[in-house]
Design a protein around this nucleic acid. Structure first.
Length: 850
DNA sequence: TTAGGGTTAG
């Protein structure tokens, strides 16, 4: 199997349960527990066992410690009878393991001292609790805290209680943290660290407002000797940043100046970061310039700040200055620059910087890889993506001590990269290799989004349904809903789209709602329900340029060009940003409704909006002129293009040639496409259509032979329709449906009646060099006609029949369906690969522009 | 106690 080497056998490192048997992994250290400094004082000086005679064991242990002979310390302790004066040495070893993030050893030592009947003291518990917090193991933390309580360390030992608050905060047991804090306040035994711990818990919990209220209360309690310290400020500043509250952030800055804490490089960095995140990059830069002591974090914070507000050139300039000044370029600086490129879709540049980073000897980590992968995904760079995957397996993933969350992010980045590079097989294999419980909403969404964009939309919707079946364990978020709607839009799954619409309204998605509503407009537009699209648009409390452009696309696709132009004019009047995409949609709308002169005028005035016409705008214009039969003007425009005409331009010209039966220009376009080595699906079919329209049967045969020799097969036409019993799909001449007999009988009857009304089969579309009567029969079997007959048989009278086709609708089918629309009580809404056709009472909304 | 990262729309 192609992707065997990608099958991961992942061992989850979860902190499972109770002390003493734990399965460990380390996490980055973020804690605000302060540990008793006096633990460093030799025990003899606290309470010598016998002040006049030095304790020889203590002396031995002290010597071992100062010589760094830690294993000897353990050996001695094991042979020494428990003594409360010598617990210091156990604590020292435990403290050392905590600082090295060696949690396994922390618990091992703690268990061992207890097994040997030593009594942990008020210094032991804070360290062990900190280890539990680092592990975010609530079960372990609660056991240790319970042990501390039964051993008498409660509400009387501020160190133990502070450590327990921090531990509960880090483990997400927020209520427990708060309860303990309140008990400390009631008992009057607390200090600055207690407040810092609970505030930090609020910040970690994401409740910035409560954190700020607590901080305010803390600084107002100077009467009881309470004062905020540097740690308090560094804790609270990210909360200001996350609320984007410049005012509160500036207040904290002012407080830090008043208290003389701003010269602390940690505080300075945090203030700078706050300003950058609040969008006040100049204030951040001013502070940076004034800071007498800067460290690598200061530089990195500014590089990141510039990168994230779009001033990426400034970020790069600063990065170069770091290089010149020989400031350590650590993994954060490199990753920030790589992410900056990736976010701008500059994947190759991101990959280059990643290579430089490796050469420089700086060790990439999970964050770096996620950034590089995002760059590879953005530019569809599949080979560098695979190389990064190999690098990840060899150097980053599944290492001892890795945060499993970080590893998962890399895997999610890999899934996204493979999906965006259209390699859905590998993306899915990676997805399958992750245990269900380890898949996050991002994992699901990355794959669903991949299928929705580059794979089978049906697979995307199948996965979405599977995710919903997972129940409350796996709730889709705004991203997931958007991806599912993209998939619905692709296949015109109106019924499911409506259900997702209802689902989105039932579940509040907050800020993501504008995204979802825009996707809904697009879904309704592409499923042929313009009224529903308009209703969503009208009811939006907030609209952005995408909402307006989506409506415009809708009107354009449905042949309502005048309304599309009106939307554009309203957008313009409302001062919404008009960009290249807006113009593509506007010109497309004009083209599909035959609004030629106004379209040309808009094209000529694009520069007034600050938009430089790109190749895709020229393609729209070629389409517009070509559809209107002005093929020579289209050719002139291509000749005068300031850039090389890309394949889309030539395909537009070719389509117009088919419409107007122009063999000469059509051949020219095909030659240009072949020169560009462009493998357009249906290129030869289009050319043979042109020959067929001109009745040049020899050329038709020549092309057919050419296709046969080259092994090119015409993509089969396929139509689908949502009947009462679900979606039915039909191919040309399809006789597999259980209702085949009824479908063909009805179709023959309709064609017979249409002929009486004046319908003459347009046999050139049959593309077979057979006599006309036989061709007429072949036309009957086209997939769109079969889908229509099925639609009539299974749709309630009066209800519209919605048909989708993967290719452009055939000209004969278009005529036949127009006639049929006079005989039946349904509106017929047909979506082909190019636009919508609304058939009613014998005419079509496209007015011949298709 | 500070800096970096993954999934969505025209």
């Amino acid at each position: 199997m192609e992707c065997c080497f990608l099958q991961f056998s992942r061992q989850t490192t979860a902190a499972t349960a109770l002390v003493p048997k734990l399965c460990f992994s380390s996490t980055a250290a973020h804690h605000c527990v302060s540990l008793p400094e006096d633990d460093l004082i030799q025990p003899q000086s606290i309470a010598p066992s016998s002040p006049s005679e030095p304790n020889p064991t203590a002396q031995l242990l002290s010597d071992c410690l100062s010589d760094g002979r830690h294993s000897d310390v353990i050996t001695v302790l094991r042979r020494t009878p428990p003594s409360r004066y010598l617990v210091f040495y156990w604590n020292n070893l435990i403290k050392r393991s905590v600082s090295f993030q060696d949690h396994r050893n922390v618990f091992h030592l703690f268990d061992e001292m207890r097994r040997l009947q030593w009594k942990p003291d008020g210094h032991t518990y804070p360290y062990v609790l900190k280890a539990c917090g680092d592990l975010t193991s609530l079960a372990a933390g609660m056991s240790i805290h319970a042990l501390a309580l039964v051993s008498g360390f409660t509400n009387c030992n501020v160190f133990v209680d502070n450590a327990a608050i921090a531990m509960y905060g880090r483990c997400g047991a927020f209520d427990k943290a708060r309860q303990l804090f309140d008990e400390m306040l009631e008992g009057g035994v607390f200090d600055t660290v207690s407040w810092n711990s609970i505030i930090s818990a609020y910040v970690q919990f994401g409740d910035s407002r409560k954190a700020l209220r607590m901080f305010k209360e803390m600084v107002s309690r100077g009467d009881i000797g309470l004062r905020a310290d540097a740690v308090s400020l560094v804790n609270i500043l990210p909360a200001c940043a996350s609320l984007r509250s410049q005012r509160r952030g500036a207040e904290v800055h002012a407080y830090s100046v008043r208290r003389g804490l701003i010269d602390d490089v940690f505080v300075g960095n945090a203030v700078m970061d706050m300003y950058a995140k609040c969008g006040l990059i100049d204030d951040a830069k001013n502070l940076f310039d004034r800071m007498e002591v800067k460290d690598v974090v200061s530089w990195n914070a500014l590089v990141t700040g510039y990168s994230q507000i779009g001033k990426f050139d400034d970020a790069l300039g600063l990065f170069d200055r770091m290089r010149e000044k020989n400031i350590e370029l650590n993994v954060v600086a490199w990753s920030a620059v790589i992410a900056g490129y990736a976010q701008r879709g500059l994947g190759n540049e991101a990959i280059d910087v990643f290579k430089q980073m490796i050469v420089s000897g700086s060790q990439p980590n999970a964050v770096t890889l996620v950034s590089v992968l995002s760059g590879c995904a953005a530019s569809g760079a599949s080979n560098p993506g695979k190389e990064t995957h190999c690098y990840a397996i060899k150097q980053v993933l599944n290492l001892e001590g890795n945060d499993p969350g970080d590893d998962m992010m890399v895997i999610n980045g890999l899934i996204d990269m493979y999906a965006k590079c259209k390699n859905l097989k590998v993306a899915h294999a990676l997805f399958d290799s992750i245990e269900m419980k380890n898949r996050s909403v991002v994992t699901w969404t990355a794959l669903i989004g991949g299928y929705a964009q580059h794979g089978e939309a049906g697979d995307a919707l199948g996965l979405f349904a599977e995710m919903l079946r997972e129940g409350c364990r796996m709730m889709p978020n705004g991203f997931t809903i958007s991806c599912a709607l993209v998939a619905c839009a692709r296949v015109g799954a109106l019924r499911l789209g409506r259900e997702i619409h209802a689902y989105a309204l039932r579940n509040r998605y907050g800020d993501a709602m504008i995204f979802i509503l825009n996707c809904l407009i697009d879904m309704y537009v592409k499923s042929g329900d313009m009224d529903a699209a308009r209703a969503v648009f009208d009811n939006m409390s907030q609209k952005n340029a995408v909402s307006w452009t989506s409506m415009m696309t809708g009107y354009g696709m449905h042949g309502r060009g005048e309304e599309a132009v009106q939307v554009f004019e309203k957008m313009r009047a409302a001062g919404l940003p008009i960009d290249g995409v807006t113009f593509v949609v506007l010109l497309y709308s004009c083209s599909h409704s035959g609004i030629v002169d106004q379209g040309i005028s808009y094209f000529n005035h694009m520069k007034d909006f600050g938009v430089v016409p790109a190749a895709e705008h020229y393609a729209c214009m070629v389409d517009l002129l070509g559809r209107a039969g002005r093929l020579d003007d289209a050719m002139r425009l291509i000749r005068d293009m300031p850039m090389q005409a890309n394949p889309i331009v030539w395909v537009s010209l070719l389509s117009s040639c088919r419409l107007h039966g122009n063999v000469e220009i059509g051949e020219h376009a095909v030659n240009k496409l072949l020169e560009l080595k462009f493998e357009v699906d249906g290129l030869y079919t289009l050319l043979s259509n042109i020959y067929a329209s001109a009745k040049q049967w020899k050329d038709v045969a020549r092309i057919r032979l050419l296709m046969k020799r080259a092994g090119i097969r015409k993509r089969p036409g396929c139509s689908w329709v949502q009947g009462r019993h679900g979606t039915a799909t039909f191919y040309v001449g399809d006789k597999t449906h259980p209702m085949t007999k009824e479908i063909y009988d009805l179709l023959h009857d309709l064609i017979y009646r249409a002929k009486i009304m004046g319908y003459v089969p347009e046999t050139s579309f049959a593309l077979h060099d057979v006599d006309d009567e036989e061709k007429g029969d072949l036309l009957v079997e086209h997939s769109e006609k079969l889908a229509l007959a099925y639609g009539i048989l299974t749709t309630t009278p009066g209800m519209p029949i919605r048909i989708m086709k993967n290719l452009r609708v055939c000209g004969d089918c278009h005529t036949a369906i127009s006639y049929i629309s006079r005989m039946i009580e349904h509106d017929i809404i047909l979506r082909d690969s190019s636009r919508f056709h609304h058939f009613k009472n014998g005419s079509c909304s496209c007015k011949g522009y298709w």
